[in-house]
Design a binder for these strands. Structure first.
Lengths: 188, 188
DNA sequence: TACGATCTACCTATCAGTAGGTAGTTTTTT
DNA sequence: AAAAAACTACCTACTGATAGGTAGATCGTA
């Protein structure tokens, strides 16, 4: 039996990923969870606090996974890259899902102040992870590329985030798959 | 003296680009234009119809410019590419602006049905233009690349759209500039 | 005088959030 | 061990503000 706070966070995350933050409400979440609106507010006293909690949990779940793969000496840079790719593909294959922070990026100015730094930190840490993978892979001899790791990671992170959003608008899954193919080929 | 409908469209576009569609209202637009809410509704009888009109105009303004550059035999593929890059840089340099359709892509499921195909068509025609530029440039000998033009255009269009969104979240203008640098170098 | 643009006044639905309370569990005190 | 106090999770009923949208009067111009 999963607790109510977790159910609220799961539901809120799903709704933000599909509809955006501005378009969700306590009522919508309450209906989906099967409780009353004030009960949602009992767990998260404001919409902003719920928003912050959703991003914080999302960020942390990525951070845990990246820490574990970086700590494992068995894993190659290719392994790390493919591992990083996998949630993007999973989102793209779920109809209508994009990265939480990709969805939020479209409406930052309508977001409460407290959420801004959460989104910013998300973007920055993901680009750092990619940069690290590229640097390590080149040092190993696994990857070959001419660009600097920061430029490459910015480009590829932008492409992955963009591809998810475009895929959802066009319905064409190859948007993401082709981006991942191109990235792989550019590193060989 | 610019007419009221145009003022409403300008204001609505600006607000959607900065805050998203869900976060805008007739009242907000009316205040900004300096008229009353029912006067806005007189020109655009529903929020959906206003949304559609904003995207349609935005799409058309790009289409006109792309047609003119493709019709000009003086223009090289590099010219066309730099020309295509320019509005992205202009948006990025305006604090808090992203591509209209990039902003909308984050909240498609909260958008009225009529807007979906407008967003989809936007994405598809932009990728076709890029594909065409790449194909022509390679035939000319201006560009060198191994990938197929559709894959390359998907990747670079994704990267440009993503970069704008990420730039706005992080405040780092190099997000877009670096993406454009990487694209240029990969074509030589 | 006819018409489009604008206005005031209003509608219903929904928004985030509050007030106050009930039932059941846990913790503290006697 | 029993009673009292506090806490947790949820509820009904409400508030003031704002959402999209309507009805109908007035104004300015061709």
């Amino acid at each position: 039996m999963i607790n109510t706070s977790t159910k609220i966070l799961d539901t809120a995350q799903e709704l933000i990923q599909t509809r955006g933050y501005s378009a969700i409400s306590f009522q919508l979440i309450a209906d989906q969870v099967g409780i009353r609106k004030p009960s949602v507010i009992h767990h998260f006293p404001s919409k902003a606090s719920l928003g912050v909690a959703v991003i914080a949990r999302y960020r942390e779940s990525f951070a845990i996974q990246m820490r574990s793969i970086k700590a494992d000496p068995e894993k190659t840079a290719w392994d790390a890259l493919e591992f990083y790719f996998s949630p993007y593909l999973a989102f793209a294959e779920t109809p209508n899902k994009v990265c939480l922070c990709g969805a939020l990026a479209g409406e930052v100015l309508a977001l409460p102040e407290e959420m801004h730094s959460e989104v910013k930190d998300f973007m920055e840490s993901h680009q750092k992870w990619l940069e690290d993978i590229f640097r390590t892979g080149r040092k190993n001899g696994e990857f070959q590329f001419d660009e600097t790791p920061p430029r490459l990671s910015k480009t590829f992170f932008s492409a992955l985030q963009g591809a998810l959003l475009i895929k959802r608008s066009t319905g064409d899954l190859s948007q993401l798959k082709d981006v991942q193919k191109v990235i792989r080929r550019l590193l060989r």
